[in-house]
């Protein structure tokens, strides 16, 4: 994570993000090599669709410029992040999920603390307004403790390739939320890319065959039991 953010000093942010978002491909390959997870046709389809989505999001965006060191930093961070997802899966199959979450963050905190002391100051927090303090607490609980614990838990039950594509969905949701709360209107290509990534997440869970037979099943349940039952079926997958 540190390397990824540091790379912004050497290459354009768009280029760094574009390279970083190729991690579902790297994750699947690493999972295949290190934990013998098979790469199925469905995985290849969903990852390809997600890649098309990423290309669409960065369409006509200037990706040139910067130095080689920046590219190397992002590539290493991609490998690290993919390695983290794979390792999560490896240990999740053997360990208790919240134990993992604790150790990940304990290590991260130990490494981050000296960097923070050298580059920043604790007085930043003293000067923060009540609203900022509240948002910091909110980020700590809702946006960190909750999702990372869930991610560790889900690693036990979901394939690494599926998790990789699923996490990409957060980018789509961020685009949607920044439009809703910050008024940042997304471009057409970003919307198209977002749709592709959403399709990729769906196809990573359901194969096309399942989707077509499942649609009939949901339709029948919807007719007899209403939309709540249909949503329940979809989420129970």
């Amino acid at each position: 994570m540190g390397l990824f953010y540091l790379s912004f000093n050497y290459i354009p942010i768009n280029r760094a993000l574009f390279i970083f978002f190729t991690y579902p491909i790297i994750t699947s390959i690493l999972a295949h090599i290190f934990i013998n997870e098979p790469i199925t046709k469905q995985d290849i389809i969903s990852i390809s669709i997600s890649f098309i989505g990423i290309v669409a999001i960065f369409w006509k965006t200037s990706l040139s410029g910067g130095t080689l060191i920046g590219d190397v930093m992002v590539i290493i961070s991609v490998l690290m992040w993919s390695g983290y997802i794979v390792l999560n899966r490896y240990t999740a199959l053997r360990e208790v999920y919240y134990k993992q979450t604790f150790w990940i963050f304990a290590f991260s905190l130990i490494f981050l603390l000296p960097v923070f002391i050298f580059t920043d100051s604790f007085s930043t927090f003293a000067a923060a307004s009540a609203k900022t303090i509240f948002l910091l607490i909110f980020v700590g609980f809702v946006s960190t403790l909750l999702p990372y614990t869930i991610l560790n838990y889900a690693s036990k039950h979901m394939k690494t390739s599926v998790i990789g594509v699923f996490i990409l969905l957060s980018m789509v949701l961020t685009i949607f939320l920044s439009f809703a709360f910050l008024g940042e209107e997304p471009k057409t290509n970003v919307i198209i890319g977002g749709i592709f990534i959403t399709i990729a997440a769906i196809t990573s869970v359901y194969s096309f065959d399942q989707l077509f037979s499942f649609r009939k099943y949901v339709k029948v349940r919807l007719k007899h039991e209403g939309w709540r039952a249909a949503v329940r079926i979809l989420l129970r997958r």
Partner: peptide, 23 residues
């Protein structure tokens, strides 16, 4: 299920950059 929980996690992850930008 892991999938519905994962959707919650993804939503929680997506809030992060928005708040980071605000503060």
């Amino acid at each position: 299920t892991p999938f519905s929980l994962m959707l919650i996690a993804v939503l929680a992850f997506s809030i992060n950059p928005i708040i980071a930008k605000i503060i």
